[in-house]
């Protein structure tokens, strides 16, 4: 089986600024892959490239062997790539249940007329959509809040909702942008267990951007280090920890 995600010599320029240069990265199915690097290293840009928000200036991104770079974000999402954001971006004006349903429903195939008329296939699909979305909320301990507006959730619950929403796309690949942002040490270790559970329960390959080294080192099978848009190291957590370039550029005095 070929890799799930292949990033081949991708470069992204914004005017004169080169946010990502000649990035190569291969993520096999089933692993958890960490991306670390200082602020401004291009980590989120990489996520935006994978999800189609940006089109690479050069290079190709393949998912399940098919080229996805250049496709519209909604198509890429439906191919099976879900993501969360550094600053939570749930639809706060929608209910908790609707947030999940919207991702679940976008995969259903029926025309606008059917959805206007509420006939046949639509009625059953709707029941199924609600049932499956509730299951997902149940798993995340959010089913009790299903009918309240998402803005009413606590910060931690909003984070969980955002992950649930991404999983409602039934993705094979889940991109998490700083899931531990704004969490203390205790919350972060709980999050580590939580993410491990998601990986096992939903059989999903994860790429996560994170600054909490403890989480990254504990959870990830492979790590890529970015600095100024370049991949400066690639390897297992042990290899990364021992890499002098990484220590110089990033880890330095900040971790264990």
């Amino acid at each position: 089986m070929s890799a799930l995600l292949e990033i081949e010599d991708v470069t992204m320029r914004f005017g004169g600024l080169c946010a990502i240069s000649n990035c190569r990265m291969t993520v096999p199915a089933g692993i958890t892959h960490g991306i670390i690097g200082p602020n401004g290293a291009g980590k989120t840009t990489l996520f935006n490239l994978i999800t189609g928000i940006y089109r690479p200036t050069e290079g190709i991104i393949r998912y399940k062997g098919r080229k996805i770079s250049g496709q519209r974000p909604s198509r890429i999402a439906l191919e099976g790539i879900g993501r969360t954001f550094q600053n939570i971006r749930i639809f706060k004006s929608l209910t908790v249940l609707e947030n999940v349903r919207i991702a679940y429903d976008s995969q259903l195939r029926y025309g606008p007329m059917e959805s206007l008329m509420r006939v046949g296939r639509y009625g059953r699909a709707e029941d199924e959509s609600i049932a499956r979305s509730m299951e997902l909320l149940e798993h995340f301990g959010l089913s009790g809040f299903a009918s309240i507006p998402a803005s009413g959730l606590s910060y931690g619950s909003q984070r969980r909702l955002e992950i649930a929403r991404a999983l409602a796309l039934k993705p094979a690949l889940l991109l998490l942008d700083e899931p531990a942002a704004g969490m203390n040490t205790g919350e972060t270790s709980a999050l580590t267990e939580f993410l491990r559970d998601i990986r096992d329960h939903f059989q999903v390959t994860m790429i996560l951007i994170e600054h909490h080294m403890h989480l990254v080192m504990n959870l990830c099978d492979k790590i890529t280090v970015l600095d100024f848009g370049r991949v400066i190291a690639d390897g297992t957590p042990a290899e990364i920890r021992a890499n002098p370039r990484v220590i110089e550029a990033y880890l330095g005095e900040s971790t264990e």
Binding site: T51, G52, I53, R72, P73, S74, A77, L78, G82, R83, F85, R89, F91, K92, S93, L94, E98, R101, I102, A103, D105, S106, Q107, L108, P112, S115, L116, R118, E126, R165, L169
Partner: peptide, 23 residues
Amino acid sequence: SRFGMALRAVAFDARSAPLMGIS
């Protein structure tokens, strides 16, 4: 309706809506 949910989602955040598969 499904259209209504998507409409409200787009109205709230048109940039992240496509990442949930909404056209």
